[in-house]
Simulated scan of single mutants.
Amino acid sequence: MKVGLITADPGHPVLAAVSALLTPDHEVVHLDPEGDAPGVGGATRADVYLLKARTPRALALAARLEERGAPVVNSAAATARCQDRVEMARLARAAGLPFAGTLALTTTEELAAAGAPAAPLVIKSRYSRRADLVARADSAARLRELAAAWPEEPVVVQEFTANSGWDHKLWVVAGRLFAGLRRSELSPEGRGPTRPLAAGELPAGWAEAALRVGEVFGLDVYGVDVLDAGGGAPLIVDVNAFPGIRGQAGAPEALAELALRAATRNESRASEVIPN
Rank of each mutant, 00 (worst) to 15 (best):
A135H: 09
Q83S: 13
A100D: 07
Y127A: 12
G250R: 08
A199P: 14
A229I: 11
M88F: 01
R142V: 08
L235G: 02
Y49E: 03
E253A: 10
V134Y: 14
L227P: 02
D225F: 00
R126D: 12
A46F: 03
A100P: 07
A113N: 09
T161D: 10
A141F: 10
A249K: 14
G232H: 06
Q158E: 12
T107V: 04
R126T: 08
T194G: 00
G218P: 12
A119G: 02
R93K: 05
A20G: 04
L202K: 07
P252T: 12
L91F: 10
L50Y: 00
V14K: 10
S268F: 10
L186D: 01
N266H: 14
W166A: 06
A162M: 05
L31W: 04
P56C: 04
G4E: 11
G165F: 01
V273R: 15
V28M: 02
P188T: 07
A162L: 10
G39N: 08
L65N: 02
I123T: 05
G35W: 01
A179P: 03
V73Y: 03
T107D: 06
R183C: 01
V86N: 13
Y222M: 10
A249S: 11
R269K: 14
A77Q: 14
V237T: 15
E67L: 13
A204W: 08
G39Q: 12
V173W: 00
E67V: 12
D9M: 06
L177M: 05
G218Y: 08
N276C: 15
T264H: 12
L235C: 12
P275Y: 12
L59K: 06
K124I: 06
P203C: 04
K169L: 00
A204F: 02
S125P: 06
R130W: 04
L111F: 11
A241C: 07
I274Q: 15
A149S: 13
G11W: 12
E67K: 13
V28P: 04
E208R: 02
L258E: 11
G42T: 07
Y222L: 03
N74M: 02
T107M: 03
E253T: 10
A116K: 14
L219G: 00
L202M: 03
A162F: 02
A114C: 08
R183S: 02
P71K: 12
N74S: 02
V157W: 09
L97Q: 12
V48Q: 00
W206T: 03
D84M: 13
T108F: 07
L121R: 07
G42M: 00
